Amino acid sequence: MLSLSEAIILGIVQGLAEWLPISSEGMTSLVMVTFFDRSLSEAIPISIWLHLGTLLAATVYFRDDVKKLLSGIPDYVRSFSKKEPHDPIISFLLISTILTGIVGLPLLLFVTDKAEMSGGSATAVIGIMLIFTGLLQRTISKDVSLARIPGMSDSLVAGISQGFAAIPGISRSGVTMSALLLRKFDAADAIRLSFLMSIPAVLVAEIGVGLMDMVELDVYSFVALFFAFAFGLVTIDLFLKVAKKVDFSYFCIGLGILSVLAMFL
């Protein structure tokens, strides 16, 4: 599946890119296609596998939120029989994850089963998606946003948006944060909800990839996972602070243009 050097490089790229709105799946796929001579359909399952490392890092970083949500599940289930109000965050994560699967699974199956592109063509496709991600970030409203509780419509918008991140080059964090900011959430809540959304979504994706036997597990695949976890855990706090202040849309657009132009060189 991977050599030792490939595992280390890809793990580091995943750990660094996951927290920024630049598509970690696009970055790792771009590295595999451009430097490791992988086809796009080969690169995508490996990219999804690497997300498990940064998922573990996010779980450690947001452990207080995760513990609170897990401890609230029994009360959430009982609230239906008692006809009491439900925990809005659990409802948000549940609905958004279901919609992510409905939208993302067909896209994932398409790009892995049908898109046997490699080399310049695959690089260009990823580049186009990076440009789209950058342009999406440029459209975020600058109006005053509010700290508020997510509702049904927020769950629908965020979940559908996250589903499109199955396409390499479309940033999961970028598209979900953009969707939540457009829904008038403040930046802090948008970032927190976006990363909480990633936990069940990535778990479901990992289960799906495992059931479909899309990734060959060996010692180097776990080396890649370790490096993704380690670098993700070390950098998450710094990068979340940077992401609030730096406009990464220009980076996405610039890298996307270079990726498209590479097809003609």
Results as ranks from 00 to 15, higher is better:
A43C: 10
A228C: 08
G101A: 09
F132N: 00
V125N: 10
G119M: 04
D186W: 02
L69F: 14
A17G: 05
F80D: 00
G101C: 08
A166C: 15
S3V: 14
T59R: 07
S221P: 11
G254L: 13
L211K: 14
S178Y: 01
L203H: 08
G254D: 08
V246K: 05
V125C: 07
P45Y: 02
I90T: 11
H86S: 11
D237L: 11
S173E: 06
V111H: 09
V125K: 11
F92D: 03
E6I: 12
L181I: 09
L40D: 06
D87K: 01
E25K: 10
T112M: 08
S173V: 08
L135R: 09
L181Y: 00
D218Q: 13
M32D: 10
V144W: 06
W19L: 00
K142C: 08
I102M: 13
W19G: 00
F222C: 05
I73W: 13
V215H: 03
P45E: 03
E216C: 06
A158E: 03
T59N: 11
P74H: 14
I46Q: 02
D154K: 01
L203G: 08
V33W: 15
F222P: 08
F185R: 00
E206D: 12
G232T: 03
A58L: 06
K68W: 10
H86A: 06
A230F: 09
P168V: 12
M1I: 11
F251P: 03
D113A: 15
L136Y: 12
D87S: 12
G151L: 02
L4F: 14
D247P: 05
F80E: 00
D218R: 14
R38W: 14
D37M: 15
P45H: 04
L2H: 03
V260C: 06
I131V: 13
W49N: 00
L203W: 05
K67Y: 15
F164W: 12
G53C: 11
F226A: 10
S24H: 06
V219N: 08
G210C: 12
L180Q: 00
I236F: 04
S153K: 05
M117D: 11
Y61E: 04
S39D: 15
A243E: 11
S79A: 14
G208D: 10
V175H: 04
